[in-house]
Design a protein around this nucleic acid. Structure first.
Lengths: 344, 344
DNA sequence: TATGTATATGCAATCGTTTGCAGACAATTG
DNA sequence: CAATTGTCTGCAAACGATTGCATATACATA
């Protein structure tokens, strides 16, 4: 007694005394089949315990009804929210989502692309690792013409379909807000510039500085993975100088929290002596004391945009030669970490 | 110019002047093929831009190399961590994971099971919704003998393969700790008892009360989804009585945070007048002020256990009639939300 | 020389669907 | 009544791999 024999449409055909083709059509509600037979067939299917074999169908029709997604990690709350939105939307269109995590490794990312292509996905959705530089695996030729949509972290300098948050504006708004709070020496703790989002936020930061005629000081800017350890390290460096910063704009909330911890340990008062902003507006920003100013990215909006776009691309496989790009809004959420006690 | 023609092993066979069977075997490193031809075939594959079609292989061999997973939502940090562990482990074994979210809906959960069965997964991993009561879709007959492993939230009163945290112990430890801190009226904010974890934690709670001869008072116990709104509501109720609680044991950290908020708003001092514990030890517990006592569940351990178990079950499809159950440890993490100021 | 063994390859069926085409039959039309 | 149309159903060839079995060759052994 091993693998119990599967019930196939052939068995149903035998049961109701019809051909497999008619059974197939009956099950998929083909208009050329009479209601009567449809009912008969469906009942027989039920009775025999038939289970549809999507694999066989996909093979024959070369429509797998599956979309692949590659993301650095699902544990980032922003990503989890985007993915959920994508998945829900795709589900209503009868598509499944195959989710893989690259763990920030470009090599693994490459492997996963191939893996997904092997499973015959009809579309590919990608938010790249921090270090992805070689985008050749995503080339039209490499993916065999399967549509690819990037979101959030997208290729720099490469035309592609993409949906991104308005990172420039986010960077700009945070910085401007800090300036307006009276800050003059605004440090920026950024991720690696190989990653699109950090590049754009940096540009926004520079733009705001420029607008207010504050010189860009590269001693105030750091590029590294935005975890706690690295951030503490950067704070260390920042506060070793005689000229200490009066604000720190960190590029995610984990980093902002680390800054707060540093401040606490070193007796620096936030927001009085140091103003701190994060980015992404994850749920910890509200819980922290002080609450942390951050930038909301509306992951749900982005997810829906991604899903809509990929479905469009799949359905209009015309000789699509141009690329679509959508920018979703951001919103600065001002909280106590950036308000001087006077104004609060 | 539509769907560009796929390169198949047939094309390779043509190219190198061999049969498809030999090509197939060469590509999969079959021992009966000479190294020489293997090389020749692989080069030709590379040259022609061949991409393996996992669908076709799965259909023929009836081994899809895919495992399905259904989880209430991936945005819970505990779940994200478990999933990541599972996925990494399965990947090393050449298996893919297809992740679906039930959004706490038993109906959707049922649909997803069928969907996954249709895609011919070789195994199914499930953490149920809060309200799943009908487990018939997971019956051996319903899933066609595909192994099913439950984790975290598992069927109550139904023999099955499962991996669970030591919820009883968690509930017991939290309660005992609160008693030892001098609490006499310990409220318990629990999830619905249709969900295994809450049932077990409640039992642990009762056990500890019993041990210290504190009567179980059902006015102190609440059952509902553990979101902020519900929890605030329960606090409201609790503090309307003349006999207010001196501790609240909430069954997740979101609820514990809501309790803290309630306390803050109502001028109740934590931990002095009210001690608060959460569960799951998510990253917010450390950030909150006061920091929240919680229970670490070691999601990574659980994930690895799940992956190992499902692989075992797949590889030993013997007439397996008995069920395996693994209980992973928990650890009480004591923080300031439960320490009276005297002892701190 | 006949037999046995090991190594390398090919034949052809098979997995469970989908789908273009053709055929059967009834109903409608001029 | 013949011709046309419409409705329903069946045939058989795919889709792209895997795999049991047979075969071919070479070499060693009795």
């Amino acid at each position: 007694m091993k693998k119990q024999q599967q019930v196939t449409i052939k068995d149903i055909a035998l049961e109701v005394g019809m051909s497999v083709s008619s059974v197939s059509r009956a099950l998929s509600d083909h208009p050329h089949i009479s209601e009567e037979t449809k009912l008969k067939v469906k009942n027989a299917a039920e009775k025999l315990g038939y289970r549809y074999n999507a694999l066989a169908a996909a093979l024959r029709s070369s429509r797998s009804k599956t979309i692949g997604l590659i993301v650095p990690r699902i544990s980032m709350s922003f990503q989890a929210a985007v993915i959920t939105a994508i998945q829900n939307k795709l589900h209503t269109d009868g598509y499944n989502l195959m989710i893989f995590q690259s763990n920030e490794s470009p090599e693994l990312e490459k492997t996963l692309v191939k893996l997904l292509m092997a499973t015959q996905v009809e579309g590919l959705i990608v938010s790249t690792t921090l270090y992805t530089k070689d985008y050749s695996v995503f080339d039209k030729s490499a993916v065999g013409g399967v549509p690819v949509v990037f979101y959030d972290r997208v290729p720099i300098d490469k035309a592609c379909h993409k949906i991104v948050g308005d990172e420039f504006s986010g960077g700009y708004q945070v910085t401007k807000h800090l300036v307006e709070q009276g800050c003059k020496r605004i440090a920026h703790i950024s991720g690696p510039l190989s990653c699109s989002i950090y590049l754009q936020r940096l540009n926004g930061y520079k733009e705001a500085l420029n607008e207010f005629q504050i010189p860009y000081d590269e001693n105030l800017v750091f590029f590294h993975e935005l975890n706690k350890e690295n951030t503490l390290q950067s704070c260390e460096t920042l506060f070793k100088n005689e000229q200490v910063p009066d604000a720190i704009f960190a590029c995610n909330d984990t980093a902002a929290l680390a800054v707060l911890e540093f401040a606490r340990v070193n007796g620096i008062s936030v927001p009085k002596d140091l103003k701190v902003s994060g980015y992404a507006n994850d749920s910890r920003t509200e819980i922290s004391r002080p609450e942390i100013t951050s930038v909301e990215q509306f992951p749900h909006l982005m997810g829906e945009g991604v899903a809509k776009l990929i479905m469009d691309l799949i359905h209009n496989q015309d000789n699509q030669r141009s690329f679509l790009s959508l920018t979703t809004p951001v919103e600065l959420i001002k909280r106590t970490s950036t308000f001087s006690e006077l104004s609060s």
